[in-house]
């Protein structure tokens, strides 16, 4: 603590220059950090270590909302529950009826694959997880989900919801995990167009409603309404999960490639429950080259 006497002894110049010098120092430090975080892996490690300390904060913030949800469940009326139960049983019946057919075609498919000598098709298991009631930076395109390493969640694990691919696990923390959404501008996902089988890579755009396919061949057969599925290339996501629907295709003669825009089928910004894929195709490996870099 500088006493007033000390303060008076300072010259005019040091007093005037000091805050500006500090601004320069800290500003430069922050910019270097941002550049390093954007380019390299070092800051990611620091962030993951620091995130361990963030977990209690998340739990604390989530507590009132979790409690609210619990209260809500407690006071739901019996009639509502009975009605919901009936609806769910009905939809389960319908689903099971559809599954019967699917099982048959799966067996048939496998027989045909055997005839062709193609490999075994992998079957995935699911792990249920809930999104934490935490709003991260809206531009970060990350979400926190419940469940950590103790439930078998690992880095790079594919995350889907009822409608399509959501993203992949980026960091596993005690009791929680961070998921990078496919809409993140630095996320890339190998896909296949359902109608034609054309393979491409879909990138996030920084907007939860838009995905981009910037590297389509000019004469590619792509049109609005085409569905995108994971192609299984890249060994991260198993093949065949819906990713998005093509909204528009741009063929600008000045460009090398045609660009297409797609809308993700998963509800990236509204969903509250997700499924994590566990299975043979989803292999344990750190988030790195293939899906992380453009």
């Amino acid at each position: 603590m500088a006493s007033p006497h000390n303060a008076d002894r300072q010259t005019l110049f040091t007093r005037a220059a000091s805050p500006t010098a500090r601004l320069m120092l800290y500003g430069l430090l922050a910019i270097v950090l941002m550049a390093m975080d954007f380019r390299g892996q070092y800051v990611e490690r620091i962030r993951n270590a620091a995130s361990l300390l963030a977990v209690p904060v998340y739990k604390l913030i989530e507590m009132p909302f979790r409690f609210g949800g619990w209260m809500d469940e407690q006071i739901t009326s019996r009639a509502t529950l009975v009605r919901q139960n009936r609806q769910l049983s009905e939809s389960l019946m319908a689903m099971q009826a559809q599954l019967q057919k699917l099982n048959e075609s799966r067996a048939e498919n496998q027989r045909l694959r055997d005839l062709l000598g193609a490999g075994q098709q992998s079957q995935e298991g699911f792990l249920y997880a809930e999104l934490l009631s935490i709003d991260l930076d809206p531009f970060s395109h990350r979400v926190m989900i419940s469940g950590g390493p103790e439930r078998g969640i690992f880095v790079g694990q594919p995350v889907i919801d009822a409608y399509g691919v959501v993203g992949q696990v980026e960091a596993v923390l005690p009791g929680t995990a961070r998921v990078r959404l496919i809409s993140d501008a630095n996320h890339a996902l190998p896909v296949q167009i359902g109608r034609t089988g054309l393979r491409s890579i879909v990138y996030g755009s920084g907007d939860t409603q838009i995905l981009v396919l910037p590297t389509l061949p000019f004469n590619a057969d792509v049109q609005a309404g085409d569905l995108l599925f994971t192609s299984g290339l890249g060994d991260r996501f198993p093949a065949g999960y819906p990713v998005g629907e093509i909204m528009s295709v741009q063929r600008d003669p000045g460009q090398t490639f045609a660009r297409a825009y797609a809308r993700p089928t998963a509800s990236l910004d509204r969903g509250r429950e997700v499924l994590l894929l566990t299975g043979s195709t989803a292999s344990e490996s750190p988030v790195s080259a293939v899906d992380d870099d453009q």
């Binding site: 910019i31 941002m34 390093m36 904060v57 998340y58 930076d137």
Partner: peptide, 20 residues
């Protein structure tokens, strides 16, 4: 930055400039 998972240093820069 750590809590909201934004680019590391982004909020640090913003707050430093603002408080300056």
């Amino acid at each position: 930055d750590v809590l909201t998972v934004s680019l590391m240093g982004q909020h640090a820069l913003s707050l430093v400039i603002m408080l300056y």
